[in-house]
Simulated assay, not measured.
Amino acid sequence: MKMPARAAIEIQNIQTELSETPSDKLINQAENALIKFKDLGDENLSGLKAAIDSAKQKMDSLTDSVQSGLNSLKDELDELDANQTAIENRRYQSQIDEWQGKLAEARKTGNKEIIEAAREALRLAEEVHNRKLATIKGGTGCCQS
């Protein structure tokens, strides 16, 4: 099916905006355009779908980068204040977030072995965290400054 010129221009404009300055608002606008122009078929909308995926990846990457930088600065301040518990709590939360994401991906595959390994990793992360907190609280071991 040949794409009408008006639709082609609108889709191209959205793709261009998404590639230049991705935002949640533009992603929503692009997803609405997919619905609006669904009759044009996958072939005509593949570029827009790719632009949406790319924009989402860019947004996720920016979020991760900013969060990582923020946590690093918080760690520096807590090191200056000798607050090892706060540092450990942030480290643990970051690790849990990562493993929960991996578990969600594993569930999508349906592979029971991978799912169980991710669950075990979450359990071990909690055990390590609890031991580190006990060490910090007790004032002994590796985690004291």
Rank of each mutant, 00 (worst) to 15 (best):
T135Y: 03
K108P: 02
R107E: 15
N89I: 15
A117G: 07
K49Q: 11
N83H: 06
L73H: 04
L34F: 03
S19G: 08
E105V: 02
E116N: 10
G41S: 09
A125G: 04
A121G: 00
G47Q: 07
A118E: 06
K132C: 00
D60E: 12
A50Q: 12
L124I: 09
T21D: 05
T135Q: 13
Q57K: 09
T16F: 08
K102V: 11
E43Y: 09
Q57V: 05
A104Y: 12
A55N: 01
Q57R: 09
A104K: 15
I11R: 02
E126C: 04
T63G: 08
I14D: 02
S94I: 14
E31Q: 12
Q67T: 15
R131H: 11
Q12M: 09
A134P: 00
S61F: 13
K137G: 03
E43M: 11
Q100D: 02
E127C: 00
L103Q: 02
K132H: 10
A7R: 07
R6D: 12
K38P: 00
S94Y: 10
S61E: 14
A8H: 06
L77F: 07
K132I: 09
E105K: 14
L122Y: 02
S46G: 05
V66A: 03
I136A: 00
E17N: 08
A55I: 05
I115G: 05
R119D: 14
D78R: 01
W99K: 14
T85P: 01
T135W: 03
I14S: 02
R90S: 07
I9N: 00
I52E: 01
A82Q: 11
I11W: 02
I35V: 09
K132P: 00
I27F: 01
T21F: 12
D42W: 04
Q93D: 12
N13L: 13
K49Y: 05
Q29W: 00
I114M: 08
P22Q: 03
